[in-house]
């Protein structure tokens, strides 16, 4: 097992490469997911507030996306 991790003496370089790659990709994924969740809660809040304030115009919010 330790032979596998030492990679013929180059273990530190190889594991650093794979580690940094994994870290960067996971960080980007988590940042994206977190941003998505934040935007979703913010959107929900806004929509409920606006809907409560003006029930007759709740439809207009959909236009903003397609126009």
């Amino acid at each position: 097992m330790s032979e596998f991790f030492s990679m013929g003496g180059y273990g530190s370089y190889i594991w650093a490469s794979y580690g940094i790659a994994a870290l960067a990709m996971i960080v980007l994924l988590i940042a994206t997911l977190r941003g998505l969740r934040q935007s979703k809660t913010e959107l929900d809040q806004l929509e409920t507030v606006l809907k409560a304030r003006r029930p007759r115009r709740a439809r207009t919010t959909d236009q903003s996306q397609t126009s």
Binding site: L29, T32, S39, L50, T60, T61, S64
Partner: peptide, 24 residues
């Protein structure tokens, strides 16, 4: 492609938030 889809959604949400805030 996974990140692309997620980020496009994020962007769409943000635009909608902006539009809602402005209309608010």
């Amino acid at each position: 492609f996974i990140i692309l889809v997620l980020r496009v959604r994020l962007e769409l949400n943000q635009r909608r938030i902006r539009a809602l805030q402005l209309s608010g």
